[in-house]
């Protein structure tokens, strides 16, 4: 098997390397990709969409329809993880024993199946697999998470002028929540942003994008033609495109953040949402 694989891979690679002989040179400013469609974007993007970051302009406007489905892909992946992994029945979910830490003393109680859980809020439930009480990690993450989230918002909002946008910002926001889940535990993260919130936000993010497109359709223009939104925004058609891009970037950010968090919940706890990494 290995020999066959190696031989076929070498053959395939050989053909592909032979094929590169006909390519335009690397970095050639006269190659077809550099001279056919893309110059229009570079030369006209600011005039047509009022967005100086051309990648953002192409991503969210010229080829906004691709990006809509790109967000839909993220949504379907999150939905697929939920669909495949989530455990719904109570009996499958309950673990054999439960552990509680008494916070003031650090003593750990083990409650056997059927035992009564301690009611005082001095106890916190902990995972059986990973129990150290990491005060330094917990405190540090508590301190930096707000700044991570602020940076995420900046990346979403400043995508018009610098590298960034909904996907990058959404991932940063989502990672801040995943960091919280890692440093505390999964239950506390779910307490902050529950499953319903992540699922509905994830769909709502894509819905903002597609809805903005459909709104253009209702205003009489083609799908995703943000220029039609200018009466709503109260600006001219060019500025409306820029604002429309901002709206969809916010939708993308929302969808990506919730999708990341939601995928993490399901993967880390194998669908049980009880304990995770």
């Amino acid at each position: 098997m290995k020999i066959v694989a190696l031989a076929s891979v070498l053959l395939c690679g050989g053909i592909l390397i032979f094929g590169t002989a006909g390519f335009p040179d690397f970095g050639d400013p006269l190659s077809p990709p550099a001279s056919h469609v893309s110059p229009h974007y570079i030369e006209e993007a600011v005039a047509e969409t009022s967005v100086p970051n051309i990648v953002t302009a192409v991503l969210a406007d010229y080829r906004g329809f691709d990006t809509l489905f790109e967000t839909a892909v993220v949504f379907s992946a999150a939905m697929a993880c939920f669909f495949l992994l989530r455990v719904f029945r109570e009996d499958e979910r309950s673990p054999s024993e439960k552990l509680y830490r008494h916070l003031p003393t650090g003593i750990i109680l083990r409650i056997d199946p059927g035992g009564k859980a301690p009611q005082s809020n001095e106890f916190e439930p902990i995972d059986p697999t990973w129990v150290p009480h990491d005060m330094i990690v917990k405190t540090t993450t508590r301190l930096i998470i707000p700044f991570i989230q602020l940076f995420g918002l900046y990346v979403i909002a400043h995508g018009h002028h610098s590298p960034g946008g909904g996907f990058q910002g959404g991932v940063i926001l989502g990672s801040s929540l995943i960091l919280y889940a890692l440093s505390q535990n999964l239950r506390m993260a779910i307490g902050r942003m529950g499953e319903t919130v992540s699922a509905v936000f994830c769909a709502a993010g894509v819905f903002i994008y597609a809805g903005a497109g459909a709104l253009c359709l209702l205003m009489g223009a083609n799908f995703l033609d943000y220029a039609a939104l200018s009466p709503l925004f109260g600006v001219d058609a060019i500025q409306a495109r820029s604002l429309g891009i901002l709206v969809v970037e916010i939708g993308v950010g929302l969808a990506v953040m919730s999708a990341m968090v939601w995928i993490y919940y399901n993967l880390a706890s194998v669908g049980r949402h009880q304990e995770g990494l």
Binding site: F65, N222, L224
Partner: peptide, 12 residues
């Protein structure tokens, strides 16, 4: 049908 109101080679 041009998505986003853009003409073909530039839009979808």
């Amino acid at each position: 049908y041009g998505m986003g109101g853009w003409n073909p080679p530039w839009g979808i």
